[in-house]
Design a binder for these strands. Sequence first.
DNA 1: TTGTATGCGTTATCAG
DNA 2: CTGATAACGCATACAA
Lengths: 330, 330
Amino acid sequence: MPVTLKDVAQKAGVSRSTVSRALNNTGRMTEETRNHIKTIAAEMGYVPNFLAQSLHETRTRTIGVVITSISNPFISELVEGIEEVADNSGYTIILGASKFDPEKEIKTILKFYQRRVDGIIVQAAHLTNFDDRRLESIDIPIVLINDEINIGTYNNVSTDSRVEVKKAVNYLFSIGHRHIGYIGSSLRMHSNRNRRMGYEDAHEENGQPINESHIFSLPMMSDYETGRKILDRVLDTNVTAVFCYCDMIAIGLMNACRERGVSVPDNLSVVGFDNIDQASQFYPPLTTVHQPKFELGRRAMRLIQHYPSEVVNEMLDCQLIVRESTRPLT
Amino acid sequence: MPVTLKDVAQKAGVSRSTVSRALNNTGRMTEETRNHIKTIAAEMGYVPNFLAQSLHETRTRTIGVVITSISNPFISELVEGIEEVADNSGYTIILGASKFDPEKEIKTILKFYQRRVDGIIVQAAHLTNFDDRRLESIDIPIVLINDEINIGTYNNVSTDSRVEVKKAVNYLFSIGHRHIGYIGSSLRMHSNRNRRMGYEDAHEENGQPINESHIFSLPMMSDYETGRKILDRVLDTNVTAVFCYCDMIAIGLMNACRERGVSVPDNLSVVGFDNIDQASQFYPPLTTVHQPKFELGRRAMRLIQHYPSEVVNEMLDCQLIVRESTRPLT
DNA sequence: TTGTATGCGTTATCAG
DNA sequence: CTGATAACGCATACAA
């Protein structure tokens, strides 16, 4: 059993309140008593019970972070950003993985609420899928990251993926491609839809018709496998370039290309999304849309700390990073 | 302010204890009252305060996880394993990043202790670097992961990297290599030393002398950059194969090779350690030692739950995965 | 079957 | 300057 205030008080021959005041440098007392008490507390290895403090202060300096899976590199960078800001201001984060299960997501949020976290950050939210009454009673700060559906209902720190994808596809048009594929991830309903709309926007801007048969997706958990498995179908069409929902899909696809003897970028240009570390380490280095992952996490955490009275939607800019997986169509 | 037991009690016209019993299905009462109370509680959106419960039960169902950096893929898989087991048994994990700073590591452990976590899992521990008296008072379960120095003092779930590296280097000898380099990471003092000893063991087993000039390292944070930057020095020697401390170093090195026109594996065989996802997605697919990352995390968590009375050191087996970054020397 | 009292560990208020 | 007391929210032993 840990040493309590009471234990220290007994040993020091004073009351608990005096010990508390001595240790917190509050109240008035001779430096002598204060130091005496501090010494005894240190000797006994006293460490204040954070639970008791939290219960009293009705705040926990804890932030709940709901993610789909921590082993996704995009997400782990996000979490790193959150953790950094949290740690710098005396907060601690608790983690919960939803595994893409909306019900699990709600459960995790409720679990965090039960733990009386001071705020919740949710990545990949399905919050309004169910008009779930269970969430109504939750009156703590909630910030979503890269949410594409709950805008206006919840605070959101995000990138405008529709616009960013449009830019990326526009780039493909600008270097001469006319038949461009879209490879999505049917598991991420909302963000996938938005990115696809960006793909369509670009076609419209360029006066190009959309060919439904150039839009691909598989309901797979593994992004690498999604990219890898889809190549067959892509090659059945006349696309000369593809935009992929995320870098991992792009990488899976490019690996399948190598196995099939399809050269990237000579036979097929590939664009990803996210700019995970791996994108630049791969060969050919992947042309992709850089998402400021670290900064998304940091902003989300700051938003929790300075919680706005009105719902806000912070938009962060992305950057198209042109590397070697794309080339002009000659 | 969240609804409390008292609020529900008032509305239901009973005492707090009755509400508590009704909700916890303890005590004896008519199903009618019980349901009545449950209904009211639900209507009011009552969610028990976990802090108060924890304070009462003197346990928090919380596990502190100390890591160096969550964005390292090896570590994020570890955490995923921990989280899975934790979640399945009603535990929640809190995260703290040490950034390779031993002092920060200690601080994080103390922070977790202050939060009265039920256990602490530490990756990359420097626990006995300082004979730090601050840790003496901590009497909660601690399990280290892949610790190479505190064996016997703390519980440890690990792989035997010395033996595993020896096997990997033996493999290189077995396919004809005689001049084998070792590329380390001087920031990971203990594990680096152990892996290097495995490298030396293999030389001894094969009756080969150790050439100190074949042992390389840089004090860099980025593993990719370490691998990339070290190639020049490697090429100044006559090594035909290198073992790398981890996959990320191997990948950085192989990228530098491509830029220099050095073919892997034709001109240089490369072996990594960890078998992160990226190892199989890279080209050439990396020959590496598979560490059971997920399982390490799971075992660590289980060890916390069934805490042994005597210090234990659980060893998990690795597997050499031969892929295409190595080839026999002809 | 239900209510009262107590304790978990801390801090703040209020007397002394 | 310091000590007793209440309060944070809950669960349980005990009393009714």
